[in-house]
Design a protein around this nucleic acid. Structure first.
Lengths: 158, 158
DNA sequence: CCCAGTTAGTTGACGCTTCAAGTCAACTAG
DNA sequence: CTAGTTGACTTGAAGCGTCAACTAACTGGG
């Protein structure tokens, strides 16, 4: 698909909204990563991985789950978890009942890093996103983002 | 900043909206890049660079301008333009009046690539973003994104 | 049982982005 | 006019993500 004939061009306001969204997807990750990296030595993705583990039963989660939670590919997660393991923030071991499955667990030192990183990260999210919007806009944003996400992967119902 | 005392935690719905937006900023770029790469051998950033040049007077623009337009750092742009130049899609030369300035120009072959890429790209934007939303939501999205962007770089008024 | 097929995860190479350092041109004060 | 500073890029190295290939473990039909 995506190439047959002449697709409907974007209206002026559609284009403007898209350009704003595109700018956002380029710039927001940079802001988040910069703050986390500077203050805690973590990327946003690493933060999400640690956060995902910390709020799971037994502070553990299988790789595929975690990848879904952190919005990344399994391959990406595998690389990241290897590095986090080398830094002593997580551990990995195969599941007992199914040897194909790898279960990652956050360590105490990983948990400490996460707890130390959280306030600054939350403050940044607040500063750039939440406090920039009205409560009504926050509600709108969630609906909008979820509708787009539903198009991207239709299954993963949240 | 971003670390003094105990910052206000996120409310449940604030957190939910943020997680949706975060998921979006992780996944949307992948979708866009994938389509453009597969169908035209371009990244979204490269596409924006070519598009920015094509709609500028003389099909030319100085590097800093272009970096701002394409939402990237000057360094990133410099690398990308070098590669695009090697592929024959753009040319570079110093400005006549100020030798520090580099002016990039899209070539005919670059323009062809862009024109060939555009329909598929627009169709993708339509499929995943524009058609997922109501006209009202599109208007909301623009306002929301612009407000967040204004926090990120307060000067760059559009 | 056993082998083909599927599922889960890992790995290495390659390309891209970032960061810090470097270049060169243009002001600017003495 | 020249020494120092600022501005506009460019460059190289280092780190991260993606893709394709690979390994290992389970599953299911014959």
């Amino acid at each position: 698909m995506a190439g047959s004939g002449e697709p409907r061009w974007l209206e002026k306001d559609e284009l403007a909204a898209w350009m704003s969204l595109a700018a956002l997807t380029f710039k927001l990750p940079g802001v988040l990563d910069y703050q986390l990296q500077r203050d805690s030595g973590l990327t946003h993705f690493e933060y999400l991985v640690l956060a995902g583990l910390s709020e799971s039963p037994g502070r553990s989660r299988r790789m595929s789950d975690l990848a879904g939670f952190a919005n990344g590919s399994l391959s990406r997660l595998s690389h990241v978890v290897k590095r986090l393991e080398q830094r002593g923030f997580v551990e990995r071991r195969p599941a007992e009942d199914d040897g194909r499955i790898t279960v990652a667990t956050i360590t105490d030192s990983g948990y400490e890093i996460l707890v130390a990183a959280a306030p600054g990260h939350v403050a940044t999210v607040r500063e750039y996103v939440v406090d920039a919007l009205t409560p009504e806009q926050i509600a709108q944003l969630k609906v909008i983002a979820d509708q787009i996400l539903a198009k991207i992967d239709p299954d993963k119902s949240c």
